Amino acid sequence: MLTTRDRRPSRARLAALTALLLLAVPLLSGCLRVQVSMGVSADDRVSGQIVAAAVPTAETDQGPQLTPPDSLARKVRVQEYKQDGYVGTQAFFSDLTFGEVQQLGSMSGQVGNSVQLNFQRAGDIVTLDGKADLKAVPDSSDVQVSIAFPARVATTNGTRDGDSIVTWKLAPGEVNTLRAEVRYQDPSTRGFAGWAGIVGGVTLGVALIVGLMAYRNRDRSPRYVRSDGANERKV
């Protein structure tokens, strides 16, 4: 199950983009597999997948079932998951805004274990603060979170897979924390800079046109120079 919570700072000009992802699956007697993989684009759009599966306890056991909300029906696709003896569901999502990521909270109404992710922007700095309470998860469970950022990750407590990808292998029976910080330009600022460039180009173009017109309409009547050095117009 995914739940969300939106935290926005009260100070002006502190742009907060918060996405709280709470993935909950039922605790079966068998092993549990929870895998969250997502990529954050330079436009603060999120795409990725969620796997929620478990070792079945009976032939009719279909494992955890993820159901997307109606509001995201066109952006989330769910399919059956069967791999390595695990059964459950796998959800794919693409081009979600931070607000839409929050709506993933209604993916499942079952109560279970959680992975909570909080993305927040302050200017050109994007920070991730996450928490995963896995105290009730079986020791043999496999719970992982992997996030790809659009720029080099400055600091993190996860395992780096290159400059911009971080993976956290969460420990069952513990409360895990996830942290990362990355710097890339605020999309809203980038758009303003582009518009400012267009306005500047138009202003420069107008100035050139005015200057050209003044040059073409200048006085072209012939002149001659008197012996005393003064300019006189030829009559």
Rank of each mutant, 00 (worst) to 15 (best):
L104S: 01
V111H: 10
L117A: 07
G109L: 09
Y86R: 09
Y86S: 06
G123M: 02
L134R: 01
E100W: 11
K82A: 15
K169G: 03
L134K: 06
Q103I: 03
L104F: 11
V115Y: 00
S108Y: 06
R77Y: 08
Q144H: 11
G162N: 02
K82T: 14
V126L: 13
G109C: 05
F149I: 00
K82H: 14
F119K: 00
G112D: 11
L128K: 03
G162D: 09
S108V: 05
S108A: 15
F93Y: 15
Q110H: 10
N118A: 02
N157E: 03
S146H: 09
D95A: 15
G85T: 12
R77T: 13
G130S: 09
A148T: 15
D84M: 09
D129S: 14
F92S: 11
G88K: 07
V78T: 11
V78S: 08
K135A: 04
L96H: 08
W168C: 04
N118W: 06
S146Y: 06
F93P: 03
V166F: 04
F149N: 00
K135C: 02
S141P: 07
F149G: 05
I165S: 03
T159A: 12
Q110K: 11
N157L: 02
D163Y: 02
L96W: 10
A136D: 11
